[in-house]
Write a protein that binds this DNA or RNA. Structure first.
Lengths: 196, 196
DNA sequence: TGAATCATGTAACTGGTTACATGATTGT
DNA sequence: ACAATCATGTAACCAGTTACATGATTCA
């Protein structure tokens, strides 16, 4: 149960489901993707539970918006989630599970290929984070001020992204060179065998 | 849909649901936790889909075991999953979501505490990985031989764990020193204000 | 007029967790 | 006798995805 708490966090500034989706896609998406349909259902549930209130507001374009805001119990719920301390143990990495079984192909070229693709993805992600980091550091408008508490904490998650992606790229490099070494060793054994 | 593929991978050596659970808890658990109940349901589903066959076998202790093995379509399904290339995008980090909103407490000591707890957890995890790594490198029996394809690929996932945890600890250290700096800066502003 | 964006929602389904039921064998 | 471990499974629930329905406004 985290999406509900994340939404409580975002609703410290009142907004609609549609706005929330945009907020996810801007930042949280990198470590917590969310679909609109799921957002709407969670909003309804939390309104039933009195953690939120909503108000219909006319929209400048399109149909009326339903703008949600935190109630006092909602803010309490958010705080008690934060007070639990860090919650671990629900991380799942599909690509690591794949690597785990890549021995199924008795062909190191396939692994090499796979890891090269991983590396490309990590590099792309790293570039995105770098761009954001630079814009943020140079005081670009739509990033929250680093002097504020909100800005500081949000920036911390970006830094984690950078550390993570650097580590992932390093792993790829280490792995690719181990693979090359293995390929060499294998071809030596091959020639040994044919020279015997 | 990954648990099913992981189970296909593990069933390259035939075993029971109970055995699979033990296999998860030994290794995969670090990046893919699985509950027995879920394992049993997936096994049934995949047997219905003819990806697996099962055979009842008497157990030396306890009730009869149902031992599953891969069928040819099962092995094809496993391979096509691996051939898809690395699958990204389903990673979710609860503790990062928490950090994101930790500005809610306008109290840096709480953040400091939180990050310290994170650091402890990462260090513990790192120690576990280090121990495994050392046992493995020194040829300890129940780790698969690093010369084999299976052993090599499984070891790669351990290496990723090590890289990740190192990065995470580094982030904690960076973060803790940023927090200390902020606390200092704040107390300077405090004294400024009272000296005005 | 038709695509893009704004905006909310439902339904069917998939994947996973928690709690519970059942029962054999082994060792204290 | 009873706890631990071996072993399989069901039921209720929770969380998330995909696909679909609906409809307003804006701009090319």
């Amino acid at each position: 149960m985290s999406l509900n708490h994340i939404i409580l966090g975002l609703l410290r500034t009142p907004q609609s489901g549609y706005d929330l989706k945009a907020a996810f896609d801007r930042s949280l998406n990198y470590f917590w993707p969310a679909e609109l349909s799921q957002i709407y259902r969670v909003l309804q549930k939390m309104e039933d539970d009195k953690l939120l209130t909503s108000e219909k507001q006319p929209s400048p374009q399109g149909p009326a918006r339903r703008v949600y805001s935190l109630t006092d119990p909602g803010r309490d719920e958010l705080r008690s989630w934060l007070d639990q301390g860090p919650i671990f143990g629900d991380e799942r990495f599909t690509y690591l599970a794949q690597v785990f079984f890549l021995g199924e192909h008795d062909d190191l070229n396939k692994t090499q290929n796979f890891v090269t693709q991983m590396r490309e993805t990590f590099i792309e992600r790293l570039a995105i984070y770098d761009t954001i980091e630079q814009a943020w550091q140079s005081g670009h408008e739509h990033y929250p001020d680093l002097e504020t508490s909100e800005g500081f904490h949000m920036h911390l998650t970006l830094r984690m992204g950078l550390h993570r992606m650097n580590a992932a790229v390093q792993w790829c490099d280490e792995t690719l060179s181990r693979i090359e070494q293995r390929i060499k060793d294998q071809s030596i054994k091959e020639t040994d065998r044919s020279n015997r």
